[in-house]
Amino acid sequence: MEEEIILVHDGVVYAASYTDLGDEILVLLPDGTQRTTILRGLTPESAAMTHLRGYVSSLNVGLK
């Protein structure tokens, strides 16, 4: 099932969708790139949020 996570940073809303594949997730970032993570006990939402934060950070807007 596909879920969505949202991160608001400096008033800008960033959203990514992710699919829980059991022991891993597939994350679709706002620019269309995909990332996967083996969960190893992480919740799918927290693992997906890590990817979204990394994406936002790569835009040079910086996360505090």
Rank of each mutant, 00 (worst) to 15 (best):
42 L>D: 15
54 G>S: 11
54 G>P: 01
25 I>T: 09
29 L>K: 01
40 R>C: 11
28 L>W: 10
26 L>G: 05
32 G>P: 07
30 P>Y: 09
20 D>M: 13
22 G>M: 12
56 V>G: 00
52 L>Q: 01
54 G>A: 10
35 R>Q: 10
16 A>F: 07
22 G>W: 13
43 T>G: 12
35 R>W: 07
36 T>M: 12
19 T>C: 15
27 V>C: 12
33 T>W: 08
39 L>H: 04
18 Y>F: 14
50 T>P: 00
52 L>R: 00
56 V>H: 00
18 Y>G: 00
32 G>R: 07
42 L>G: 10
31 D>N: 12
43 T>Q: 09
39 L>F: 09
44 P>Q: 06
34 Q>C: 09
30 P>E: 11
21 L>H: 15
24 E>V: 10
20 D>C: 14
39 L>D: 04
42 L>V: 10
54 G>L: 07
21 L>G: 13
23 D>T: 14
34 Q>A: 12
35 R>N: 09
25 I>S: 04
39 L>M: 09
51 H>I: 03
18 Y>Q: 02
51 H>A: 04
50 T>N: 05
29 L>A: 06
48 A>L: 02
20 D>I: 10
34 Q>V: 12
45 E>T: 04
29 L>P: 00
39 L>V: 11
19 T>G: 15
19 T>F: 15
37 T>K: 04
32 G>N: 11
22 G>E: 14
16 A>Q: 06
30 P>V: 06
38 I>S: 14
44 P>G: 04
31 D>S: 03
35 R>A: 13
22 G>S: 14
33 T>R: 09
32 G>A: 05
42 L>H: 13
20 D>W: 13
37 T>C: 11
20 D>F: 14
49 M>R: 03
33 T>C: 07
53 R>T: 05
41 G>W: 06
39 L>W: 10
23 D>K: 07
40 R>K: 14
39 L>Q: 05
42 L>S: 11
34 Q>R: 11
54 G>K: 04
48 A>D: 03
47 A>V: 04
48 A>Q: 01
52 L>S: 00
38 I>L: 15
45 E>I: 03
18 Y>V: 04
21 L>P: 04
55 Y>P: 00
45 E>F: 04
46 S>R: 03
38 I>H: 15
44 P>S: 09
31 D>F: 10
49 M>N: 03
21 L>S: 13
50 T>W: 02
30 P>K: 06
19 T>D: 15
19 T>I: 15
23 D>W: 14
23 D>N: 12
20 D>T: 13
47 A>N: 04
55 Y>I: 03
44 P>C: 07
24 E>R: 13
41 G>E: 06
24 E>S: 13
47 A>R: 02
50 T>V: 08
40 R>T: 11
24 E>N: 12
21 L>M: 15
46 S>A: 03
56 V>W: 01
18 Y>H: 05
